[in-house]
């Protein structure tokens, strides 16, 4: 148990640093504006929190994570708003996609411990929600709806690819 907590703390800092120092530069430098592509990896922290994490904890951690990323992006509150929404929705989707026999004790929410199909549904739903909220709050007006949807779509594709790569490399089957 203690091990899990430490790993999650480490993952928190690694993901914040990765997002703020590296992935932000990629979207800033290579493809500014025109292609609408960003890579958001940090929501993976919320995705990979242990299944038994209390909902209150998930909410507080998502807000904290969002604010931390906001510090790098110089956009106070935007990532926090989106990630908090995702943190709130997490338990809803967890119960929606719960396997018929329930979640196994101490299972991690990864493709290795559950199934690839399950993880894809779970991460795609939450990432879609997160990105939609993020770009909505970022644009802050419904008149940019087309831009919001395009950005959500392209960023969704690139972010899902990054998440799957990360999960396959660092969360192998036990």
């Amino acid at each position: 148990m203690n091990n899990t907590v430490i790993w999650n703390i480490i993952r928190f800092f690694v993901l914040v640093a990765l997002q703020g120092l590296f992935l932000k530069r990629i979207s800033d430098g290579w493809v500014t504006g025109s292609l609408y592509i960003n890579i958001f990896l940090y929501p993976l922290f919320i995705l990979l929190l242990p299944l038994q994490t209390p909902r209150t904890g998930v909410l507080l951690l998502s807000f904290l994570m969002g604010i931390s990323v906001d510090l790098f992006y110089d956009s106070p509150g935007v990532h926090a708003a989106a990630l908090t929404a995702m943190g709130y929705a997490r338990s809803l989707f967890l119960s929606l996609y719960e396997p018929r026999e329930g979640y196994k004790l101490n299972a991690r929410p990864t493709p290795g411990d559950l199934s690839m199909n399950w993880f894809l549904k779970y991460s795609a739903s939450l990432m879609g929600l997160h990105l939609l909220v993020y770009f909505s709050v970022d644009a802050f007006s419904p008149i940019y709806i087309l831009g919001i949807l395009l950005r959500t779509f392209f960023t969704f594709v690139s972010s899902m690819a990054a998440i799957l790569i990360f999960v396959f490399i660092f969360m192998p089957k036990r």
């Binding site: 209150t56 507080l60 807000f63 906001d70 106070p76 908090t84 709130y88």
Partner: peptide, 16 residues
């Protein structure tokens, strides 16, 4: 949890 969620979202939007 819902109240906390609402509070955090409000806080985030105020920051925004």
């Amino acid at each position: 949890n819902f109240l906390l969620f609402g509070f955090l979202e409000l806080l985030a939007l105020i920051l925004v």
